[in-house]
Design a protein around this nucleic acid. Sequence first.
RNA 1: AACUGUGCCUGUA
Length: 376
Amino acid sequence: FRSSVDIVKSCTISRDLSRGKEIHSQVSAGRHCRNRYLNNLLVEMYGKCGETEQARRVFDTIRNPNLFSWNNVLIAYAQNGKLREAQNMLEKMPQRDSVSWTVVLSAYAASGHFEKAELLFNEMPEKDDFAWNTMVSAYAGGGFLEEADSVLKAMPYKGPVACTTMIGAYTQAGHIEKATEIFDTMPHRDVISWNAMLVAHAENGDLLKSEQLFDQMPERSLSSWNAMLAACAQHEDLDKARDLFERMPQRNILSWNTMIQACIEAGNFERASALFRMMPVQDTVSWTTMITGYSREGCIDVARRLFDAMPERDIATWNAMVGSYTASGQLAEAQRLFDRMHVHDVITWTALLAGYAQAGQMETAESIFYRLPGKN
RNA sequence: AACUGUGCCUGUA
């Protein structure tokens, strides 16, 4: 039993649907097939893997669903953008708690329905910290900084989550003074708040302030080290980056990727590719970083060889490769890759559009612009 | 008893 639980949980975390299905059929055939706890976990697993229908099917087999069961299907709907179903569910549930409300609120905000989110928030019988934080995050994520700030102001306790959300939002908007003000006046700072503020200064071009924060902070997580490393990379300070990288208490794949990026920003491709080969395991980010590095250096054929050699490509990889060709005026090859892609996003389209515009083919560029879905 | 919701770090124009 215990091991089934662990397997389902790990499938949820790694979004491993095929292994999830396997364990599901094993569970169904075993003597714990009616166990509510295990079935709740299965509902969650299917929901997180995007399989709303499966989640619902498992839920329907549960004899006496508890609040966890209900919330888990609700989350499956909400987090997969099935707003109508989620809303329905919320209304029909025999009991609902703050989690139920918050989940739907968050889903509305994620799809741009801020009025509905606000309405739900006001309807909530009792608002816990999560609900408040989610409302702040809803507005902040939509770029409504004033609304987010007024929710923050109304909060009974302005905890580190809500404040850090605001720091991030102000950073993105380029309002470093606002971010600083929040950071300086917030009642409690945790390591994540420190990290966010460190990033804020780096984004603002102030490496010195980032370093000061890094030195002052009461404790440092792996993310703190990675963020500081990224700050050095951004500012093309390879010496500082290397020194940090050597001193880090632990490294994960982000640390390696960031260090490679630091080398590339500083123009040291030798070092970048040495690190690339040296790292314990490369992911698509590592490969894409190298591809972009080489193509910026003008070595598009090397970039293409990496592209063809890598085990798996995601959309950013394809975009990088298309962008390499458009940037170097090889429109035909860019178009060929574009046509081979299964999914295009705004970045893909923009790259192609820019390529045609650059080449003076304005009619083609314009027609791409008009066909472009979800323009920003 | 164990299962659910919010904020930080890497690549693509």
